[in-house]
């Protein structure tokens, strides 16, 4: 799947599936990178950076099969990104970051588990993601079943992000997925964990204002544009430069 990389030329549309997975990983990695220097304990500085690095590695590996990684990351505009809206959500407090990670990593682990035969990266990714999921689960338990304050923050985070989870079960062109099985396994795992964490599973819908699958169509939420502006500005300020 290689495509001649011309600096400055926006990418032609690569297949949705691989691009969506790469964009998910890039965008979530970027959000986690924003935590550097701000984490609640030193151990979490290490853990969050570690997860961010794994995800960035996944993104780079997937992009490299589609074209030039930097061209894909730095020279596409908001409407050309295919990441789900969940991963672009701002970090918020530590509970929001953990809820986002729980929802996403649980999905990613199951997804790559289904793609072991068809996506070369999947074998490596599924091992990394199992660690991310484990980390998010442990913190969901500690925050949910910790103090009254942490419980209410964790519940608010789960409630706030729930509407972005439906998008995870939209079909992705080019990826052979059993979506019903994915949804069932994800729901069982996540709701079971929320119960153990003494949290309530939201009854609200799993989709937001846009139609389901919006991020996959390049329809994003408003915080995504500023995130890209920050990420891309230096690269775009020096056209043709290498770094």
């Amino acid at each position: 799947m290689s495509r001649a990389a011309t600096p400055g030329t926006p990418a032609a549309a690569p297949p949705l599936g691989a691009l969506a997975l790469a964009d998910d990983a890039l965008v979530l990695s970027h959000r986690l990178g924003e935590w550097a220097g701000h984490a609640p304990v030193l151990e979490e500085e290490v853990a969050l950076a570690n997860i961010a690095l794994d995800l960035l590695g996944q993104a780079r590996s997937l992009y490299s099969d589609l074209g030039d990684e930097d061209e894909l990351a730095y020279l596409r505009e908001e409407r050309a990104f295919r990441n789900c809206q969940l991963v672009e959500q701002p970090n918020g407090d530590f509970a929001s970051t953990i809820a986002r990670q729980l929802f996403f990593s649980s999905w990613q682990e199951l997804l790559y588990g289904q793609l072991l035969e068809s996506v070369p990266l999947a074998g490596k990714a599924v091992k990394e993601v199992a660690y991310h999921r484990d980390h998010a689960e442990h913190w969901t338990l500690r925050l949910g079943d910790g103090t009254p304050e942490s419980h209410s923050r964790m519940q608010a985070a789960v409630d706030g992000l729930w509407r972005f989870t439906g998008e995870l079960f939209q079909p992705l062109d080019g990826l052979d997925l059993d979506l019903d099985a994915l949804r069932a396994a994800w729901t069982e795992r996540v709701t079971g964990l929320l119960a153990r964490a003494t949290l309530t599973v939201p009854q609200s819908p799993q989709t937001g204002g846009w139609t389901a699958g919006a991020g996959r169509q390049g329809l994003h939420t408003e915080s995504f544009g500023p995130m890209l502006a920050e990420m891309q500005h230096l690269h775009r300020s020096h056209p043709g430069a290498t770094w």
């Binding site: 890039l26 990178g33 924003e34 960035l56 930097d70 730095y74 920050e230 500005h233 290498t242 770094w243």
Partner: peptide, 8 residues
């Protein structure tokens, strides 16, 4: 970190 000019 958020403005690094290449993924590498």
């Amino acid at each position: 970190i958020t403005r690094a000019p290449s993924l590498r």
